[in-house]
C-alpha cells in the first residue's frame, strides 16, 4: 500500500513536469515544424531568473516566478527572431534550426555559468500546504505541480480552442499556405507560440528548482523525458501529449520504485524505441498529419 501511494504521488508530479515541457515542444513542433533542442536550457534559465528575483529582488516566490516568465518572454522573442525565423524557410531548414537551438543550449548553459557561478542553487518550496489522500501525501511544491501543471496546460488547450489567436495557431498547424492566403501572418503566431512554450518551460524550471536543485545542466533530463512523451503521444497533438506525460510519469515512477534510479531511464528509453518502431506516429494517435 505504501509503495502504491509513493508511485501515485510521483506519477502526478513527474507527469505534471513533463507535461509542462512537452506541451511547449508540441506546440512549437506543430506550428513551426521545427524541433526546439534548447527547451531544456530555456527551462534552466527561467529557473535561475526566478531565483535571482527571489534572492536579489526579495520578491515572494509566486511573484518572482511571474517576473521570470515575463523576462523569459523577452528572451523568447529574441529566440524566435535570431534562431528560428532566419532558417525556417531555407531548404533543409529543420536541421539548421536543430543545430542552431543546440548552439543556443550551449550559449544559455555557459551564460548561466558565467552569471550565476558554478555552485548549485535551490528555490524555497511553493507554499507549505499538505494534502493526504488515501495514504498518498503531497506537499509544498509537489502539490503545486500536481495542480498547476494540468491547470496551465488545460488553459492552453482552452485558448487554442476558443480564442482568435488560438484559431490562427490551429489554422497554421493544419495548412500553412492556406492560412497565409486568408491573411494570417505566420510570424506573429510563431512569436506567440514560442513565448507561450517558453513560459510553460519557465514554470516547470521553477517547480523543479524548488523540488531539486538549479544547475546549468538541469534541463537535460527533463528535455529527454519530453522527447519520450512526444514519441508516445505523437508530436503535434496536445491531448496525446497530456496522456503521454502521465504515462511516462507512471512508467518512470514504477520502474524507479522497483528497479532503482539508474535502470529507470534505460527502461523508459527502451520503451520509447520500441514505440517508435511499432507505431512511429505515436501510440495515442490514429492519423498521421503530413507535413
Amino acid at each position: 500500500m505504501d509503495g502504491i501511494s509513493v508511485i501515485v504521488t510521483s506519477t502526478l508530479v513527474l507527469g505534471g513536469l513533463y507535461m509542462l515541457m512537452a506541451a511547449g515542444l508540441t506546440l512549437i513542433w506543430s506550428t513551426l515544424r521545427v524541433f526546439n533542442f534548447g527547451h531544456g536550457a530555456l527551462m534552466m534559465f527561467g529557473a535561475y531568473l526566478t531565483w535571482t528575483l527571489l534572492d536579489a529582488g526579495g520578491l515572494p516566490v509566486a511573484v518572482a516566478l511571474l517576473g521570470a516568465v515575463a523576462a523569459m518572454a523577452v528572451i523568447g522573442v529574441a529566440y524566435e527572431f535570431l534562431l528560428v525565423s532566419p532558417f525556417i524557410r531555407r531548404p533543409g531548414g529543420d536541421m539548421l534550426v536543430m543545430v542552431a537551438t543546440l548552439a543556443a543550449t550551449m550559449l544559455l548553459q555557459s551564460g548561466a555559468q558565467l552569471i550565476w557561478g558554478p555552485e548549485i542553487k535551490q528555490l524555497p518550496p511553493f507554499g507549505g500546504a499538505r494534502v493526504e489522500v488515501a495514504g498518498a501525501v503531497a506537499q509544498g511544491s509537489q502539490l503545486v505541480t500536481i495542480l498547476l501543471a494540468p491547470l496551465l496546460v488545460g488553459l492552453l488547450a482552452l485558448v487554442l480552442k476558443r480564442t482568435g489567436i488560438g484559431l490562427t495557431v490551429r489554422a497554421l498547424e493544419q495548412n500553412r499556405e492556406h492560412a497565409q492566403l486568408l491573411g494570417i501572418a505566420p510570424r506573429r503566431v510563431y512569436v506567440f507560440v514560442v513565448v507561450v512554450a517558453i513560459g510553460l518551460a519557465t514554470v516547470a524550471g521553477a517547480l523543479l528548482g524548488s523540488m531539486q536543485f538549479i544547475s546549468p545542466g538541469m534541463g537535460g533530463d527533463p528535455l529527454l523525458r519530453a522527447f519520450v512523451v512526444l514519441a508516445l503521444g505523437g508530436a503535434g497533438s496536445l491531448t496525446g501529449t497530456i496522456a503521454g506525460a502521465y504515462a511516462i510519469g507512471l512508467l518512470e515512477a514504477v520502474t524507479t520504485y522497483y528497479f532503482g534510479l539508474s535502470w529507470s531511464p534505460v527502461l523508459v528509453f527502451l520503451a520509447m524505441i520500441v514505440i517508435m518502431l511499432v507505431k512511429p506516429e505515436g501510440l495515442l494517435r490514429t492519423k498521421v498529419r503530413s507535413a
Binding site: L83, F87, V99, A100, A103, L107, S110
Partner: peptide, 17 residues
C-alpha cells in the same frame, strides 16, 4: 572557462547565419 563555450556557440550561429 565558460567563455570558450560561448565563443564556440556563437561561431556556430554566425556560420549558420
Amino acid at each position: 572557462g565558460a567563455w570558450r563555450d560561448m565563443v564556440i556557440a556563437m561561431l556556430i550561429l554566425v556560420v549558420l547565419w
